[in-house]
Design a protein around this nucleic acid. Sequence first.
DNA 1: CAAAAATCAGCAACCAGCCAGACAGGACTT
DNA 2: AAGTCCTGTCTGGCTGGTTGCTGATTTTTG
Lengths: 235, 235
Amino acid sequence: MSFPQTASSSQASGKVTDAITGGTLTTIIRCLAGSSLDLVERGKTIFLPGDPAERVYLLRCGAVRLSRVYESGEEITVALLRENSLFGVLSLLTGHHSDRFYHAVAFTRVEMISAPAASVRQAIEADARVGLMMLQGLSCRVLQTETMIETLTHRDMSSRLVSFLLVLCRDFGIPADQGITIDLRLSHQAIAEAIGSTRVTITRLLGDLRSEGMLRIDRKKITIFDPVALSRRFS
Amino acid sequence: MSFPQTASSSQASGKVTDAITGGTLTTIIRCLAGSSLDLVERGKTIFLPGDPAERVYLLRCGAVRLSRVYESGEEITVALLRENSLFGVLSLLTGHHSDRFYHAVAFTRVEMISAPAASVRQAIEADARVGLMMLQGLSCRVLQTETMIETLTHRDMSSRLVSFLLVLCRDFGIPADQGITIDLRLSHQAIAEAIGSTRVTITRLLGDLRSEGMLRIDRKKITIFDPVALSRRFS
DNA sequence: CAAAAATCAGCAACCAGCCAGACAGGACTT
DNA sequence: AAGTCCTGTCTGGCTGGTTGCTGATTTTTG
């Protein structure tokens, strides 16, 4: 499978765009009744399946992992949210309150703000620009999630992994001395849970990529030397 | 892989919820400057990659397939949108207009309404309830897309197919004399493109399911006899 | 601060599942 | 009636899942 011609255009939903609305939304949500600013330590749970869905969250710093836990103990990652992502959208849905069905965990140290869905609704009715901004935030979420679906439909694991690494570069990449470093401490297991593979396979494939000189891993942080070259690695 | 205990709760984003907002949104969008009601024949293109993204769409009847076409000629399905889905969200993103990067095709005969993003923005500013409804519509989209990600992370194709069929039941299912019929004419190829597999594999797996007495296929329409039993088919 | 515990990375052997490619017969379209 | 698209089946071959073990690294705890 080869990459689409317009691959780069999918970067349109980049960090820059939502940083603008995200920043403004922060100040707005902070003023709502019942809002709070929370600091969550790495690994701590934000909400659990079964909790009532009544708050909307805006991630300010760090990464949040949404996952589904199966009876077998297996766990899959549904989304890795980056800065300025809106989440807990379930609570926005019409009146009758439902329960969360995902597990939200702080993947890094997290700084986020949240407010009751009711307050958010009021705020929107009071000032329509709030709704517009949230709409843009959610649009970003949709586009990001769709990119992830593209990643997951790649048939061979190698392409899938590469595609995922590029997504991570987009969402969590910071410029490094040589290349781009993904600013997350990723275990092979965590990657496997995100792309529907196994720990062993990820170990092998990352080993391949490293010996090909595409990336470097230092204390669980991956540095991609040349994302463009990596994206060409599709046949 | 086994299904999560809370599987049924993910149905919270069911058709009922968005039918309400969808219906109201229709009348609102119809009144916007530059809005239009379009009928599109099965197989016709709604927008192409590279087209300017300037309109927002609301699907009223039928199904729309969003897909990505690769240079190799391969095509993968990013989303199969059902009634009352909002799409073309890219155009909602901040000012500077970008280009579509997905291919949107009418998967069935489609009835949809659309309006320029600018009109939508104005409408939201004029009446905040419009923003609220669109927000709910998009929230549904996010939840649907995330369910699809769950489907795609199943490791064996059999689970993946079953999970996909259940999603289709949720989104396109109509009660039949015995069981639920998915109201779409699905070729094996189309299914393969949606779950990242191949036509041949889908043929084999559907054959297995049929000989197990789980479903029936009549003129490309699949009827699931007992969705609950099917969901138990995970080991 | 060092010892203990837990988590993680790497390697190997085995084998099932799925893909590729090819072909024939059936169903639908026009 | 011809052509296109779709389904069904087969063979070989390889990817990637599974299991099990070892040493390294990180985190927790006394």
